[in-house]
Write a protein that binds this DNA or RNA. Sequence first.
DNA 1: CGGATACTTGAGGGTTGTCAAAATATGTGG
DNA 2: CCACATATTTTGACAACCCTCAAGTATCCG
Lengths: 250, 250
Amino acid sequence: MMEPFTSGTSVLDALIRKLSTIALLSAEEKSAVRDLPVIVNRIGAQDTIAREGDRPVHCVLVGSGWLCRHKMTPGGKRQIVSLHLPGDMPDLQSLLLKEMDHSLSAITPATLGLIRHDHINDLHLRYPNLAKAMWRDTLVDAATYRDWLLGVGRRTAEERMAHLFCEMYVRSRAVGLVADEATCDWPLSQAEMADALGLSLVHVNRTLQTLRSQSLVTLSKGRLEIKDWDGLCELSGFDPSYLHLIKPPA
Amino acid sequence: MMEPFTSGTSVLDALIRKLSTIALLSAEEKSAVRDLPVIVNRIGAQDTIAREGDRPVHCVLVGSGWLCRHKMTPGGKRQIVSLHLPGDMPDLQSLLLKEMDHSLSAITPATLGLIRHDHINDLHLRYPNLAKAMWRDTLVDAATYRDWLLGVGRRTAEERMAHLFCEMYVRSRAVGLVADEATCDWPLSQAEMADALGLSLVHVNRTLQTLRSQSLVTLSKGRLEIKDWDGLCELSGFDPSYLHLIKPPA
DNA sequence: CGGATACTTGAGGGTTGTCAAAATATGTGG
DNA sequence: CCACATATTTTGACAACCCTCAAGTATCCG
C-alpha cells in the first residue's frame, strides 16, 4: 500500500495534488514545487516529529501515512486537534510561528519530506501565487478547527464520530486515496479516536457499535467502509463546504 | 468608554497596535496601514455582519467593541468559535476563502472599519512584510482554535471558564485595553459564555458561582475583575505561549 | 506460541443537560 | 422619573450522557 519513495519527487507530487484541491496552480508553479530541495525520511507509528516548545527549521510534508497534531493539559489529558493525510504540510505554520504550541506525531508509519524554511520562503518570493495557495491551506486548516470546535462543543458522541468519518473520507478522496468507491484507510485506534473526538475510549467503543448496528459504517483491518453515505451525512449534519475544496465532492 | 471614530484613522491605529503585538512593523509600514481606505461603520449589539454562505468583499476591522464568530448545527445548537477585540480582523480569511463557513456577529455595539479586499491585496504586494504579519495573525487565530479545542475536549467546565478569563484578560492587556491592573471589559452574557464554552446556560451560572466562591474572579456590570491571577492560571493550566505575543505578559 | 496491544463488556458514579420557574437587572416610553 | 416589558441571572429537581474502574476477549506480531 505504501511504496517507498526513492527520491523527493513523489512526496512533492503529493503536495501538488493536495494544493490542487484548494487552488489552481500553473504548470510553471507545479514544476517549481517539484524542484524544491527535500529530504525524504521514514518514521515509525507513534513517533513524534516535533514537540510543543520546539523551533523547527523544516516544514514537514506528508508523503504517505497519517499524522496528527495534539496538545495536552497539565493533568496529562490529550486532545488530537487535527489529522493529516499525504500531501498535507501539518506544520506550515512554523514558517511564521517559530515556537510549536503543540506536538506533531505519526499515527502510522510514514514517509516525510523535510523542506527547509528558507527554501519555502524563497519559493514564495518567486511565486506569490504559491504563497497564496499555502496561506489558503493554513486557512482551510483553521476552518477545519472551527468545525471540530462545533463538534466537540455541540455535537453528541454519535454525531461527532459520524462527522469525522465523513470528513476523512472526503479528504481522502480529494487527494486520490479512494480507489474503490466506498472505503478508505482508517488507521486510528479507538484510543486515538477518543483523543480526536474528546471522548473516553470506552465511549468510543460503544458509540462505534451503535453506528455499526445502524448499518452506517464498518471498521476493520485498518479500513473504513461507508455503508450508508446519506445516512451518515444526515446523522452528523456533514456539509463539506468548510473544506473549501475547489471541486466539491459529488 | 468607547468614543466614536470620526475618521478611519483611529480604527487603523487599533489595527497597528494589534499587529504590533505579534510582529515588528517599520514606520513606513505603519504609515502605509494608516493610509488604507476604510469605511467606518457602527453596529448594534447582536447585529450580524456576515453569515455562513456569504461572499464578503470587505475585511472587517474592529475599532471598538467585541465580536464573535459562530457556527450552528442543523439542530440549531450554537458554538462560538472565537472572540474578537479592537484591532482584530476577524474575517481576514475571507481574502482567500471566498465563502464564509461561519457567521460573524457583534457581542456589543461596535465600531467597524471596512477595508476592501483589493486594497489589502494591494498593500500586501507593496509591503510583503505586512502580508506576513497578517498571515501570522491568521495563524495565531488557528493556534487559539487549537487551545479552545483542547479546552472543550479535555478541560472541565471550571478549568475551561477560568482559561477563557485568562485568555481574554491577556489579550485585552496586549492591545492596551487594561488600564487599571486587574480588570477588563467582560460584555458576554452567561448565555454567550455557554455558547463559547460548549456548556449549557445553567451550568455556566453554577460554574461561575464556584469560581466566585473561591475568590478567583468577580463579574459585574460588564467588567471582569481578577482577584487571584495565580490561582486562575493554576486552576486552568493557562500558558499564554499559544498567543504568540512578541512581548509575553509579565 | 506467547506477550503485548487493541477491543469489548459490565457496573456504578459524576458532570453536565433539560425543564421550569422565580428573582433580579436592564431598558424604554410616557 | 416612574412603570412596565424584557432580558438576564439564579435556583431547584431530575434525567441523560458520558466517564472511570475493572476485567475479560480478541487480535497482532515476533
